[in-house]
Amino acid sequence: MLDADFFRRWMAATSASVDREAERLTALDSPIGDADHGSNLQRGFRAVTATLEKEAPDTPGAVLTLAGRQLISTVGGASGPLYGTLLRRTGKALGDAGEVSEAQFAEALRAGVDAVMTLGGAAPGDKTMIDALVPAVDALDEGGFAAARTAAEEGALATTPLQARKGRASYLGERSIGHQDPGATSSALLVAALAEAAGE
């Protein structure tokens, strides 16, 4: 079973990972975006860690809902509402249970990913975070956290040959081909942090 501590570890591991990878995320965002993805997410997840320490929510749903709200209010770029919606919808789907099973979490995360697709209008293949998240959720259902991490990383790598159809990168048309998508890359970090929190 997964408790509030597990989800706090997830957010802390994500923040640490985004700190380590911020320069790489921003570098990926330079040719096809506006070169702020790393710094925006770093600011957002640091604020998430701080607010979780301060407010100490005590259920999985409350941890993720609070984290999501914090991302929406502090990131300042499109990744704020997108990641914020992902975590908040996942949190809302978990309700107020003190512990949730992996299967319940996988179902909730799928609801979160669906909400991101609705918000941004992106589908798999559009060269967005969805290309890492959808394979991750599918793998989570079948193989657990480690399988989800591998699927998200492969999904992020597979965005390189795609042409962007959403967001700032879509203005570049064919010139977006050949670059790995920064949002899919940070989504893979988020999923990898999940495996880290689970000790896998």
């Binding site: 929406i72 499109a78 704020g80 509402p81 997108l82 908040r88 941004g120």
Partner: peptide
Amino acid sequence: LGSAVLTVKALLAE
């Protein structure tokens, strides 16, 4: 555009 649209939509969903 972009995050302006998404942020308002996320706030409305809240």
